[in-house]
Computed example of a mutant assay.
Amino acid sequence: MRDLSNDHALLSLNTATVRKQWRLDRIIDECARRGIHAISPWRDQVADVGLETVARLLRTTGVGLSGYCRGGFYPAANTAGLTAALEDNRRAVDEARALDAPCLVLVVGSLPGALQGVPAYTDITRARGEVRDGIAATLEYARTVGMPLAIEPLHPMQAAERACINTLEQALDLCDELDPERSGMLGVAVDVYHVWWDPKLHAQIRRAGAKRLLAYHVCDWLAPTRDLLNDRGMMGDGVIELKTIRREMESAGYAGLCEVEIFSEDWWSRPGEEVLDTCIQRHRSVV
């Protein structure tokens, strides 16, 4: 297993971690100042600053990407909605390409309207079918521009609103169906917050192998958890066996970055400088 204790060369920052403290241009500058050489930005943050401006900042600071957040949210109530989702995912692929991202992360969606409290339908099997068809169509376009897609399974608590793909096994089944040749164009983003509990996790990481393991996200699961979306823990503050999971990832061939992604009202209330400095310290000591 790689030794992270001497530097933070393998640290990436998902920009949601300090999104309430700073705009994306400031985040890039603060990361560059601390020797954090990679980020994974969100589309709304990029749009706020401007795609061309962000691309220029990345070039001038030498900061790269570990991924781009996000595509997905394929299911819809009608044909027009399905078409709109595909068009939006095509734009997401183009943005990821413009920023030279190694992959576009897919949060696939589930029951349309559920996030607003008014689901258009409650047939999760239908939603999974629309997800399958949506990824297939996006993959067809992504191949033409060389942008890999990384399916991110989300914890079952988010199965209704955000993602009906909830285990690594489900995500890999889709990969095997849609990309049987293991081309490197379709894989998974393994976020420990969403998958740490899964008794099949280690076996499915081994099944994925280097070709499918496109991204690795770290944080921690607090016990008790006070909010199912915005109470992620800083690495080392919770119950996830971070080193064990990373050892399994690397044994399976993963050689990429460890991306810190923390949605937390607690950490959002702290100075951004404190958050980044803590990320660096915990990356070296517990990740």
Rank of each mutant, 00 (worst) to 15 (best):
L154W: 05
V239Y: 15
A159E: 11
A47Q: 06
R284S: 09
D179Y: 04
R70T: 08
S110N: 04
H283Q: 05
Q158Y: 13
G71M: 13
V192K: 04
A142S: 09
T167S: 15
V49R: 00
G117M: 09
Q45H: 02
L168V: 05
G187D: 01
L82E: 11
P271R: 06
A47I: 11
E87P: 06
P112Y: 14
G238Q: 04
E177I: 10
S264P: 00
A171P: 14
V286G: 05
G64R: 13
A32Y: 08
D88C: 13
C279H: 03
G253D: 05
L104V: 08
E30A: 10
L58S: 10
I245Q: 03
Y74R: 11
R143I: 12
I151S: 06
T15P: 15
L82G: 07
L228A: 07
P75Y: 07
L242H: 11
G233C: 05
C103I: 03
K243Y: 03
I28Q: 01
G272C: 11
A77K: 14
L4V: 06
S66N: 13
G184F: 00
Y141H: 02
F73R: 14
C175D: 02
A32T: 08
L106Y: 12
M185T: 04
L82D: 07
E52K: 02
V118E: 05
A84E: 08
L24P: 01
L172Y: 03
V108H: 04
E261N: 08
Y74D: 11
W221K: 02
E30C: 11
E181G: 07
R212I: 08
R162P: 02
D88P: 03
A171D: 14
L222I: 01
C258A: 12
E87F: 06
R132L: 08
W268E: 04
L4C: 11
L13T: 00
P102S: 01
R59S: 12
D94H: 09
T244F: 05
T278F: 05
T83F: 14
V145F: 09
E30H: 03
G146Y: 04
V49A: 05
C258H: 04
L11K: 01
S183N: 06
N166M: 08
T60D: 14
V145M: 11
G253W: 06
L213H: 03
A101M: 05
Q281R: 15
I27Y: 00
